[in-house]
Amino acid sequence: MDTSKKWNVTRREFIKGAAALTATPLVLHQLPFYGTLAHASSEADLVIAKHGSPSQLLQAAMTPLGGMGRFVKKGQRVVIKANIAWARTPEQACTNNPELLTALVKMCYEAGAKKVAVWDHTCDNYQFCFSRSGLKEAGQKAGADVLSGHGRNVYKKVEIPNGKKLKTAEVLRDVLEADVFINFPIPKHHFATELTLGMKNFIGIVWDMELLHKIDLHQCIADINTLRKPDLVVVDAIRILTTNGPKGPGKTEDIGEVIASTDIVAADAYAAAFFKHPKTGKPFKPEEIRFVKLAFEMGLGQIDLSKVRVKRVSAT
């Protein structure tokens, strides 16, 4: 009886106590706590940042999304799937912008990441890709491990339960096992699939990439995306490749945007409009890219941008 008596709390007492408990850290640790409070609230699901240097663009795009602290917690391992597929220079826009990669890695570390790895299974020889694209240096400068999936030992054979045509695949083990997974694509023209966007970037986690072409490329792109939803998608649209994709060199266009989103289909749907349809000459509609449409139908994200909280910000 004594114990039950002890825990008899009136409603008023409870509210008082709860208020005090909430307030204590606010008083004791005002600044950091306010910081996290601000991060935790997201105003948008898709943020487009324009005007500014790569790091400014990233910063501007991330803040309305809730900041990097929303995705990366202290002591976590982060995997960034970059696009380092080709032995091209940064100006040719076939690979990610090195400055943006540096900024992204730094931001992960600032949010408390224990280790950040940048992965890609390159198409050209990885040594040439890493050095010519400047991305190995850029990643390492910020303290990340820039790793290449050229050895089969870093892959893991997995079932794809939600895949329609692709039932099993060997994918990068770290992508599956890391605490946080960031997809970091660059939109490009692609002759076979019209465009290469965020979801297409996922192909670079597969060991036998060419095999997917044999099955059904568009469906495979959607299928492989069911494996793990990226915690964050950062689309590098500072400069994009508009012809001769995906390897280039071709015509490039300076868009000067960085898009951050939690919804990969929405990000792809937005980025598709950078390119003009070869037949109509009008910007691509998201439905015109088959893998985006398939992914939407499979429930991987929202293709209709009017149903997504979109926010445009200026970095400067």
Binding site: F191, A192, E210, H213, K214, H218, N244, K247
Partner: peptide, 17 residues
């Protein structure tokens, strides 16, 4: 089927579709 791996990989724009 759409394949075009050869076109995608060619460094010299020697394969067109």
């Amino acid at each position: 089927k759409i394949c075009l791996v050869c076109n995608e990989q060619c460094s010299y724009h020697a394969i067109i579709g």
